Simulated scan of single mutants.
Amino acid sequence: MGNSKNAQSSATPTLISKGCVVTGKIESDVFVRIDGHIKGDLFIGEGLIVGEDGLIDGNINTREIVVYGTVNGTVKAESIEIKSSGKILGEIQTRTFQVERGAVYTGMVSMAKDAVVEHLVAVQ
Rank of each mutant, 00 (worst) to 15 (best):
G2A: 05
G2Y: 11
S4W: 06
K5E: 13
K5W: 04
N6L: 08
N6E: 14
N6P: 00
A7K: 14
Q8W: 08
Q8K: 14
A11T: 08
A11P: 00
T12A: 12
T12S: 13
P13R: 04
T14F: 10
I16E: 05
I16K: 06
I16Y: 09
S17L: 11
K18R: 12
K18E: 11
K18M: 08
G19Y: 07
C20W: 03
V21K: 14
V22D: 01
G24W: 02
G24C: 08
S28H: 01
S28K: 07
D29V: 10
D29E: 11
D29K: 14
V30I: 12
V30E: 13
F31V: 01
R33M: 10
I34S: 02
D35S: 14
D35V: 02
H37K: 15
I38D: 07
K39L: 15
G40S: 05
G40M: 07
L42R: 05
L42P: 06
F43S: 12
I44L: 09
I44E: 05
E46H: 11
L48C: 06
L48Q: 06
I49S: 06
I49P: 01
I49F: 02
G51S: 14
G51N: 08
E52I: 08
L55Q: 10
I56R: 03
I56L: 13
I56P: 09
G58H: 02
G58R: 03
N59P: 06
I60P: 11
N61T: 12
N61H: 11
T62L: 04
R63K: 12
I65D: 01
I65C: 02
V66L: 03
V67P: 00
Y68K: 12
Y68D: 12
G69E: 03
V71H: 03
N72R: 14
N72P: 00
T74R: 15
T74Q: 14
T74N: 09
T74C: 12
K76Q: 14
K76T: 14
A77P: 08
A77N: 07
E78D: 14
E78V: 05
S79E: 05
E81Q: 12
E81D: 04
K83G: 00
K83V: 01
K83F: 04
S84L: 00
S85G: 01
S85L: 07
G86C: 07
G86M: 04
K87N: 09
L89C: 07
G90R: 08
E91N: 13
Q93I: 15
Q93N: 15
R95P: 00
R95G: 08
Q98H: 05
Q98P: 00
E100W: 04
R101K: 11
R101Y: 09
V104G: 00
Y105V: 01
T106A: 09
T106Y: 10
G107V: 09
V109N: 06
S110V: 07
M111W: 03
M111L: 15
M111A: 07
A112H: 06
K113D: 14
D114F: 02
V116L: 11
V117K: 10
V117D: 01
H119W: 11
L120R: 11
A122V: 09
V123E: 08
V123H: 10
Q124S: 09
Q124T: 06
